[in-house]
C-alpha cells in the first residue's frame, strides 16, 4: 500500500513547486475584510478621514481668516449672518477657527501615539522575550511612570519642560510609553510560552530571528489595537495641556485652547463655547470606534 493511500489522504503527484498552490488570504487581508464589513467602524473611519482632509486643506476650506477678529462682532451666536457657527470672544469666525484648529489638535493628539507605540513596543517586547533581570529592570522603571495618573504626569512633564508644541508632544509621548510597554510585555510573555516558539528554538534559530519571524507578527496586532484606543485619550490630554496653557499658545487656533479662552462665554454663548469640545468629542469617539472594530476584526476565530 502506498504511503498516501495508507494514511487515507488523496494521493498526491510528486511535488513540484508550482504556481498552482492554493493561497489563503493573509491574516491582514482578512482583518481588513472583516473591518470593512463593520458599519460602525467604517462610519468612524470615514469621519476620521474627513477630519484629516479638513485639517490638511484648512486654508482652502475655511471661509474666513481664523486670526482676523472684529471687536464689533464678539460672541455672536450660531447662524449670525456671515458667521455660520458664530464668533468667538475676539470676534473671529468660529467655523474657520474650528477648521484650522483641527490641524494642531490632530497633530498633538495623534503623533505621540505612534512614537510611543514604537518605543513602548521595543521596551515591552525586549522585556517579555528576554525575561529575568532585564524584564525586572525595564518593567519596574516603567512602573514608576505608570504610578502617576496620566493627566498629572503630562502636566508635570510639560511644566518641567516648559510650554510649547514640541514639549507638549514629548511629554505626551512619555505618558503613553509605560502603558504600551506593559501591554507589549504581557502579550510577549504569553506568546513566548507557546510551543511554536519552543519549536523555533529547537530548530536552532537565534533570538533575533525568532523575534522577527515568530514574535512580532503575533504581538504587534494586539499592541496596535491598544495603541489606537489611546489616540482618544491623547486628544483629550493634548487639549487639556493647551487648556492649561502648557501646549499651544494663543492666538493659534487649537480646540483645547479655544475651549479655554471661550470658557468665560459659557453663560452668554454656551452653544458657541461648547463647539471645540464637540469637535474633541467627535474625534475621540471616532478613534475609539475604529479601535473597537479593529479589535473584533483581528479575532481570527469569529
Amino acid at each position: 500500500m502506498s504511503l498516501s493511500a495508507a494514511i487515507g489522504q488523496t494521493p498526491s503527484p510528486s511535488p513540484v513547486v508550482d504556481a498552482a498552490v492554493v493561497r489563503s488570504p493573509g491574516y491582514w487581508t482578512g482583518v481588513l475584510r472583516r473591518l470593512s464589513r463593520d458599519p460602525v467602524a467604517m462610519t468612524a473611519l470615514v469621519v476620521i478621514v474627513l477630519l484629516l482632509l479638513m485639517a490638511i486643506f484648512a486654508p482652502y476650506i475655511a471661509p474666513a481668516d481664523p486670526s482676523k477678529g472684529s471687536m464689533l462682532r464678539r460672541l455672536k451666536p450660531i447662524g449670525f449672518p456671515g458667521y455660520p457657527l458664530g464668533a468667538d470672544e475676539l470676534g473671529r469666525d468660529m467655523l474657520s477657527r474650528l477648521i484650522h484648529g483641527g490641524r494642531l489638535s490632530l497633530l498633538m493628539g495623534v503623533t505621540p501615539v505612534p512614537i510611543a507605540f514604537v518605543i513602548g513596543s521595543l521596551l515591552g517586547i525586549t522585556a517579555g522575550y528576554v525575561g529575568g533581570l532585564t524584564n525586572t529592570l525595564i518593567m519596574r522603571t516603567v512602573d514608576v511612570f505608570y504610578a502617576f495618573p496620566s493627566v498629572l504626569l503630562a502636566v508635570a512633564l510639560s511644566g518641567a519642560l516648559g510650554a510649547g508644541l514640541t514639549n507638549a508632544l514629548v511629554s505626551l509621548t512619555l505618558v503613553f510609553v509605560p502603558p504600551i510597554a506593559r501591554v507589549a510585555e504581557s502579550v510577549t510573555t504569553q506568546v513566548r510560552g507557546l510551543d511554536y516558539i519552543d519549536a523555533a528554538r529547537a530548530s536552532g534559530a537565534k533570538a533575533g530571528s525568532i523575534i522577527r519571524v515568530h514574535v512580532l507578527g503575533n504581538v504587534l496586532g494586539p499592541i496596535f489595537v491598544y495603541a489606537t484606543s489611546l489616540v482618544s485619550v491623547s486628544m483629550i490630554l493634548a487639549s487639556g495641556l493647551s487648556f492649561l496653557g502648557l501646549g499651544v499658545r494663543p492666538p493659534e487656533p487649537e480646540w483645547g485652547l479655544m475651549l479655554n479662552t471661550l470658557r468665560t462665554a459659557i453663560y452668554t454663548q454656551p452653544m458657541v463655547a461648547a463647539l471645540p469640545g464637540v469637535m474633541i468629542f467627535i474625534t475621540s469617539i471616532a478613534f475609539n470606534m475604529v479601535s473597537d472594530g479593529l479589535r473584533s476584526a483581528m479575532d481570527v476565530k469569529s
Binding site: 504511503l3 498516501s4 498526491s12 511535488p15 513540484v16 513547486v17 498552490v21 492554493v22 489563503s24 476565530k301
Partner: peptide
C-alpha cells in the same frame, strides 16, 4: 520551500492544497 512541499506530500497532505494555508483552517 521545495523541501516543505516535498515533506507535505510525504506526510500525506497535497502541497498544492495545503502549502499556502494557515493553521486555523
Amino acid at each position: 520551500r521545495a523541501k516543505a512541499h516535498d515533506l507535505l506530500a510525504r506526510v500525506g497532505l497535497e502541497p498544492g492544497r495545503f502549502a499556502g494555508r494557515y493553521p486555523h483552517e
